[in-house]
């Protein structure tokens, strides 16, 4: 069913569209754009779309992947322009192509985490973040739907493949490559761990940007 993929970005006002709402938005946008796509079968058929690795509400991204099945009559190259005319502000299609590799080969995600300090980055914050990420192990408790207690423990370090931290005047920018799935790591947990370990360096605001999808060799996944 999912023979095709769209590479799209989500930014600006569109960051606040939730995963489910985004799927609905795409189903309608295909229809508006007059691009026929495959439907699910069964009692209540609907346009099939699937977005790999749901992005948290509020995050921006330049590497989202949507899977769908393009029906005959529309060429892949004309899809981006036609879809862009039918999509809300902030969602931009960059590419439409045939899916060659399975999504499970998408093993890592590159995120940019920006810690914002309105009055300047406090002394020691950069070192503290680097120290945190350099540890052998960093076990945190996170909410879990499966665990009976509602919480489960997870060690962040094995899920962080690589990182760099750069201190600027008002921001601390972490460029991280995290495990994407089975299990994946939500970069929010890095923020939470930092704020818990170093409450004195808790930033005013943190923004998250998904920059690239990667495979096991660290190459770009499409």
């Amino acid at each position: 069913m999912a023979e095709h993929r769209l590479l799209f970005s989500k930014s600006g006002r569109a960051r606040y569209i939730s995963h489910l709402d985004l799927m609905r938005t795409f189903q309608r946008a295909f229809f508006r754009a007059g691009i026929p796509i495959k439907h699910t079968e069964g009692f209540n058929p609907h346009a099939f779309v699937s977005i790999a690795l749901p992005l948290s509400v509020g995050y921006s991204s330049e590497c989202e992947l949507l899977e769908f099945g393009l029906l005959d009559g529309v060429r892949e190259e004309e899809v981006p322009a036609r879809m862009n005319a039918a999509l809300p502000e902030g969602i931009v299609i960059h590419e439409c192509y045939k899916a060659l590799r399975p999504i499970k080969a998408l093993t890592h995600l590159n995120y940019i985490i920006t810690f914002d300090y309105e009055t300047g980055v406090p002394d020691g914050a950069e070192t503290a973040l680097k120290e945190l990420l350099s540890r052998e192990s960093l076990v945190v408790t996170k909410k879990s739907k499966k665990a009976k207690s509602g919480f489960t423990e997870v060690d962040l370090i094995p899920l962080i493949k690589s990182w760099t931290v750069e201190g600027r005047r008002d921001t601390l920018v972490a460029d991280v490559v995290l495990a994407a799935q089975n299990p994946g790591l939500n970069p929010e947990l890095i923020r939470a761990a930092f704020c818990e370990e170093f409450p004195q360096f808790a930033p005013g605001f943190v923004s998250f940007h998904r920059r690239e999808t990667l495979d096991g060799d660290g190459k770009v996944f499409r």
């Binding site: 600006g12 006002r13 569109a14 606040y16 569209i17 939730s18 709402d21 938005t25 946008a29 508006r32 509400v57 509020g58 039918a86 999509l87 809300p88 502000e89 902030g90 005013g204 605001f205 923004s207």
Partner: peptide, 21 residues
Amino acid sequence: LERILPKVQKPARYTGGEYNA
């Protein structure tokens, strides 16, 4: 606004930017 939207329920209600807006 950018800072408060992540804290509220259903923030897409407060952003505008919909198709045909």
